[in-house]
């Protein structure tokens, strides 16, 4: 928990926002880019996200969830709002996530994450895509059912199973946790 960081953020300490950016910008950018499918738009969304965080830090309540969950909700909602613009609908026709994520350049996958990426690969693709739609893209279970043609009852059952699998792979006692902590430390010390 980042009690001290949260306190400084609520007190409008700029170094707190800087630290928050170092800790979470990569994870948030990964999510945002998957939703908006455009590096330019994703950067704008990430900027808007951190400005909203700065402006609304007083509304974060640690009793209701982790700081990252709050940040992710803001980032996801900002990204979904951005997809509703006419410009986005035009761009969506010309690009796809595969071309974005695999193409070289500034927006390439962080090589530090390659170790844990293998852990992600251990998740069954059908559970992974279900979590991605819901957790990263903000779909409701009903929307998932509509989009994929899978009955709503099956979606609910699969989501329960997917969450169990996710917690097995990324749970606190897993080695992946160690890798992630090491990574976070490296990021913080950069």
């Amino acid at each position: 928990m980042h009690t001290e960081l949260i306190l400084r953020l609520k007190q409008q300490d700029r170094t707190a926002l800087s630290q928050l950016y170092d800790l979470y910008s990569s994870a948030l950018y990964g999510v945002v880019l998957r939703i908006v499918l455009s590096p330019e738009l994703a950067q704008q969304v990430l900027q808007d996200t951190f400005l909203k965080v700065w402006k609304n830090s007083a509304s974060y309540d640690s009793a209701k969830g982790r700081l990252f969950t709050w940040l992710l909700n803001i980032a996801r909602n900002t990204a979904i709002d951005a997809t509703r613009t006419a410009h986005f609908r035009y761009k969506q026709k010309t690009e796809s996530l595969d071309t974005l994520v695999s193409r070289p350049g500034n927006d390439s996958i962080n090589p530090d994450h390659l170790g844990v990426r293998e852990a992600v690969e251990t998740l069954d693709e059908k559970y992974k895509s279900l979590i991605d739609l819901i957790y990263f893209k903000g779909y409701t279970q009903e929307e998932v059912a509509e989009e994929t043609g899978i009955p709503i009852g099956t979606v609910k059952t699969r989501l329960r199973y997917a969450m169990n699998e996710l917690r097995k792979v990324f749970g606190e006692t897993n080695t992946v946790a160690f890798l992630l902590v090491a990574e976070a430390l490296r990021n913080a010390l950069k």
Partner: peptide
């Protein structure tokens, strides 16, 4: 899980 799929901006 989100961290595992992070992309550096």
């Amino acid at each position: 899980y989100a961290n595992a799929q992070a992309i550096t901006p």
